[in-house]
Nucleic acid binder design. Structure first.
Length: 752
DNA sequence: AAATGTGGAATTTTT
DNA sequence: TTCCACATTT
C-alpha cells in the first residue's frame, strides 16, 4: 500500500508495521522508534481496512504511554479512536469490570484502593482483629497478598508451608472479606478479578475474543505472569498479538515483571498455520555511536538475552567521560562544574539529566546545585493525588459514591476535627465488627449515645447532605461544593500553612474539570456495541475515560489509577534529577550516571538475589541509552551513607565498558580527602586512576580509601587502619569476601 | 489535637 | 545521618 504513513520507516520498522494478521514479537531496542511502530501499525491496520477501531486493543503500562499513543494515533489516522480500547492494564481491567460488575461480583460503584489505602486497610484489620504487627509487619502482608494475587491465587488456593504462612493466609482471607464488604479493590485485584471474569464466563470471554482481532502490547518485557495469562485469555484463536518490548530494558522484576514472557511468547502465541514472527529493531535514532557501543558492550555481559545490537549511522560522537571523585561531595562539585560549562555553552538545563540508583543520592547533588544556584527539578516523591489534602477531598467524594468504604470513612470522619475521637471510633468499630457491617452502616444504626453519638450523627447527615447537594451538579462543581461544605476549605484557610493545601484543592477542582472535558475524547464509546447473547445487558457504560458509569466514579478511578505528576509546576528550564528507573523512556542531550560504585550501582541488595546483578546491568543499560550526545559516568571513592563514610570500589559496570570508549577526566594526582587517620603515618599515594597504567610501588604505602588486591580475597578497599610498624593492621572491604582485618606484615596486599 | 520524643530502617515503584 | 511512623506528652 502506498501511503505517506509508511514513508521514512526503515526496512525493519516497515516489516513490523505491515506484518500479516498473526502474532508477532517486536524486539525494539532503546531509541529504535518503538512507539512509532506501534501507532503506525494501528493506523495501517485501520487505513487498509484490515481492522475496525472496535477490533483494536492496545495496552501499555503507564497512562502517559497510553496518552501518547492516542495522541499520535489521532494525528495519523482520520478515523476516530473511539471504539478502541487503549489504556493501561489496570485501566482496561477496570473498564471491563465496570461493564460486567455483576458477573465480577462487585458493586457497581466499587472503589479502587491505591497502595496507601491498601496498607491503611491492612492496619485497620490488624487493630480490629488484634493481629500482632511485630510478627506480621503490615507491609509483609501487603506484599504477601499482592504476590498471591499475582500468582492467581485466592486464600483457599495458597499453600501454606508453616504456621506463619497459615496465619498470613488467614489474614489474606480477612482482607478479602473486608474488601468485598466495603466494595473496594486494590490494584492487583483489578487484574485478578478481570482475569477470573474472562476465565469463568465463556460468554464474556467469547465476546471479547471475537471483538479484539488485534491486541498490541507496549513494554512487553514488563508484563507480569498474570498480565500474560490475561493476554492469553483475551486473545482468541484468530487474534494477532503484536508485542513490542526489549528484554534488555527489563528493570521491574522486583515488581513482578517477568522477562521470561518474551521467551515464551513464541511458543504460546503461535498456531500451526501462523507461527509467531520475530522482528528486531536495532537501528537507534537517539544516540551517537560511542554511547551505543558502550551500552552494547555492557549488556553483552548478561546471559539469556534474546540478543540485539544497537547501531546508528549518526557517527561515533564524543567519548564516554569518566570521573573518579575522592568523595561524594567532590563528585557533586565536579558535576556542578561541568553542568555550568554546558549551560554556559548554551545547552538547555532541561537537556541534562543526573541519574542515580537510589533516591537518597539526590541530596548531595541537590545541595551542590542549590549552592551553585543552578535550577533543578527532582522527580519522585508524592504525586498529586497522593497528597493528604487531596486524599481527604477524594475520601469525601468516595463516601458520596460509596459510603461503605471504611477507609474513606475513617479518613474524614474527624477531618476537619468535629469531636469524634479515638474512643468513639473504637466503639463504632466494635459495633460494626459485631454486626458484620461497615462503619457507615454502624454509624447510621446509631447505638452510640451521648455527645459522641450526636457528632457521629452529624457526620452521617453531612455526607448525606453532600450527596443530595451534589447529585445534580457537574463534577467539578460537585468537587468544589464538597470542599466547601465539608469544612475543609475553612479549616485550611484558618491554618497558617494551609495556603498550599488550599491551592491543591483548587487544583483538584480544576483536575475534575479537565477530566470531564477531555474524558470523552479518550474512551466514551459504548463498551459493547456488538451485542452477544451470553453477555448480560450492560449498564450504559459511557462515562469518560475509565469507562465507569458515572463521572464521579470515573473520576475517582482516574485518581486512583493515575496518581498524577510529582510536581504541578513546570516553570523555568531546570536540570533533571531522577532515579534510573524514573528515566526509562526519556532521553537527554547529556546524561550523568552517578554513584557508580560497587554496592550502590550495582546495589548490594542485588548480590544475593538470583540474577540480581543482571537486572542491575539492565538498569545501567537503560541509564546509558538515555543519552543522545554526551555521557558522563561518575563515582566517589568515599561516600556518606547512613551516617558514616563508606569506601567503595568503582562499579564493575565501568570496567565492562571497553576502555577505548572511555575518556578519564580524573586528575592524575588527586589526593584522597583527609580521613581521621594520620596521613603522614600512612604515607600518601596518588589516588588510583583506573584505566590508566598503574604504578606498582615497590614498598606500597597504604591509605584509607585505597583499592587493594589480596591473593585470596580479591579486590577491596581499605576502610580503616590501626597500629603501626609490625602491628599495623588494615580493615578491607572486599568486593566478594566482605570486610576483613588484615595484618600488614603477613597479608600480601597489592595496590589495585 | 498539636507538639515533641523515640526507635528503626534506609533500593528501584509504570498501576 | 536523616527520615518516617508511631507513641507519648502538653
Amino acid at each position: 500500500m502506498a501511503s505517506p504513513l509508511l514513508d521514512n520507516l526503515n526496512p525493519e520498522q516497515l516489516a513490523a508495521v505491515t506484518l500479516p494478521q498473526a502474532s508477532a514479537l517486536i524486539l525494539a531496542g532503546a531509541g529504535s522508534g518503538k512507539t512509532r511502530v506501534l501507532t503506525t501499525r494501528i493506523a495501517w491496520l485501520l487505513g487498509t481496512g484490515q481492522a475496525r477501531p472496535m477490533g483494536i486493543l492496545a495496552v501499555t503500562f503507564t497512562n502517559k504511554a497510553a496518552r501518547e499513543m492516542l495522541t499520535r494515533l489521532s494525528a495519523m489516522t482520520p478515523q476516530s479512536t473511539r471504539g478502541m480500547w487503549i489504556g493501561t492494564f489496570h485501566g482496561l481491567c477496570n473498564r471491563m469490570l465496570r461493564a460486567h460488575y455483576r458477573d465480577a461480583n462487585l458493586p457497581q460503584l466499587f472503589q479502587i484502593l491505591d497502595t496507601q489505602d491498601q496498607l491503611a486497610l491492612i492496619k485497620r484489620l490488624y487493630r480490629t482483629h488484634g493481629i500482632d504487627d511485630e510478627k506480621f509487619p503490615p507491609r509483609d502482608l501487603q506484599w504477601f497478598i499482592a504476590d498471591a494475587k499475582e500468582a492467581g491465587k485466592r486464600p483457599n488456593a495458597v499453600e501454606a508451608g508453616n504456621d506463619h504462612e497459615r496465619r498470613l493466609v488467614e489474614y489474606y482471607a480477612l482482607y478479602e472479606a473486608a474488601c468485598q464488604r466495603e466494595g473496594v479493590v486494590d490494584f492487583a485485584e483489578l487484574l485478578l478479578r478481570s482475569f477470573e471474569l474472562l476465565s469463568n464466563h465463556a460468554g464474556i470471554r467469547g465476546h471479547y475474543q471475537a471483538r479484539f482481532a488485534h491486541i498490541l502490547v507496549d513494554e512487553f518485557q514488563d508484563t507480569s505472569e498474570l498480565q500474560y495469562r490475561w493476554l492469553r485469555l483475551l486473545a482468541g484463536p484468530d487474534a494477532a498479538v503484536f508485542a513490542v518490548g526489549d528484554d534488555d530494558q527489563s528493570i521491574y522484576a522486583f515488581r513482578g515483571a517477568n522477562v521470561a514472557n518474551m521467551q515464551h511468547f513464541e511458543r504460546d502465541f503461535a498456531t500451526p498455520e501462523r507461527p509467531v514472527r520475530l522482528i528486531k529493531l536495532e537501528q537507534n535514532y537517539r544516540s551517537h555511536g560511542n554511547i551505543l557501543d558502550a551500552a552494547n558492550a555492557l549488556i553483552a555481559n548478561n546471559q539469556a538475552r534474546l540478543g540485539k545490537n544497537l547501531w546508528t549511522d549518526a557517527g561515533k560522537g564524543d567519548a564516554v567521560r569518566v570521573f573518579s571523585a575522592p568523595s561524594d561531595l567532590d563528585e557533586a562539585a565536579f558535576i556542578v562544574d561541568v553542568v555550568r560549562g554546558l549551560v554556559d555553552e548554551g545547552l538547555a538545563a532541561s537537556e541534562i539529566a543526573l541519574l542515580y540508583r537510589s533516591n537518597a543520592q539526590s541530596r548531595v547533588l541537590e545541595h551542590a546545585l542549590f549552592a551553585a544556584g543552578i535550577p533543578y527539578r527532582v522527580y519522585g516523591g508524592l504525586r498529586f493525588f497522593e497528597r493528604a489534602e487531596v486524599k481527604h477531598a477524594l475520601a469525601y467524594l468516595r463516601l458520596v459514591a460509596s459510603p461503605d468504604d471504611d477507609g474513606a470513612f475513617l479518613r474524614v470522619v474527624n477531618f476537619p476535627p468535629r469531636g469524634i475521637g479515638a474512643r468513639t471510633l473504637e466503639q463504632l468499630q466494635e459495633n460494626a465488627r459485631s454486626a458484620g457491617s461497615t462503619l457507615w452502616q454502624a454509624a447510621r444504626a446509631g447505638g452510640i449515645t451521648g455527645r459522641a453519638g450526636a457528632s457521629l450523627g452529624g457526620f452521617v447527615q453531612l455526607v448525606e447532605a453532600l450527596r443530595a447537594s451534589t447529585a445534580a451538579l457537574p463534577l467539578s462543581e460537585a468537587v468544589a461544593t464538597i470542599i466547601e461544605m465539608s469544612g475543609m476549605a475553612a479549616h485550611f484557610k484558618a491554618e497558617k500553612d494551609g495556603q498550599d493545601r488550599l491551592e491543591n484543592l483548587e487544583e483538584l477542582v480544576h483536575a475534575a474539570e479537565t477530566f470531564v472535558r477531555e474524558g470523552d475524547l479518550a474512551t466514551d464509546a459504548p463498551m459493547l456495541s456488538t451485542r452477544v447473547e451470553a453477555v448480560p445487558a450492560e449498564p450504559p457504560a459511557d462515562g469518560p475515560d475509565e469507562g465507569a458509569s458515572d463521572p464521579l466514579t470515573a473520576f475517582l478511578a482516574h485518581a486512583a489509577l493515575e496518581a498524577g505528576d510529582t510536581q504541578a509546576e513546570e516553570g523555568r528550564p531546570a536540570l533533571q534529577l531522577m532515579s534510573v528507573h524514573a528515566a526509562k523512556g526519556l532521553e537527554f542531550h547529556t546524561v550523568f550516571v552517578t554513584g557508580l560504585e560497587e554496592g550502590l550501582f550495582p546495589h548490594e541488595n542485588s548480590f544475593n538475589v538470583d540474577a540480581g546483578v543482571d537486572e542491575e546491568r539492565r538498569l545501567m543499560y537503560v541509564a546509558i541509552t538515555r543519552a543522545r550526545r554526551r555521557l558522563y559516568l561518575t563515582y566517589a571513592q568515599s561516600r556518606m551513607l547512613h551516617g558514616q563514610s563508606r569506601y567503595n570500589i568503582q562499579s564493575r559496570f565501568i570496567d565492562e565498558v571497553p576502555s577505548g570508549l572511555l575518556q578519564w577526566l580524573s586528575p592524575q594526582r588527586m589526593r584522597a580527602r583527609a580521613i581521621d587517620v594520620d596521613a603522614a603515618e600512612w604515607g600518601a599515594l596518588p589516588a588510583p586512576t583506573p584505566g590508566s597504567p598503574k604504578p606498582t610501588p615497590q614498598a606500597p604505602q597504604w591509605r584509607i580509601g585505597q583499592s587493594v588486591r589480596h591473593a585470596k580475597f580479591g579486590v577491596g578497599v581499605i576502610i580503616d587502619a590501626e597500629g603501626r610498624g609490625s602491628d599495623a593492621r588494615v580493615q578491607v572491604n572486599f568486593r566478594d569476601a566482605g570486610v576483613k582485618w588484615l595484618a600488614l606484615e603477613y597479608a600480601k596486599l597489592e595496590a589495585a
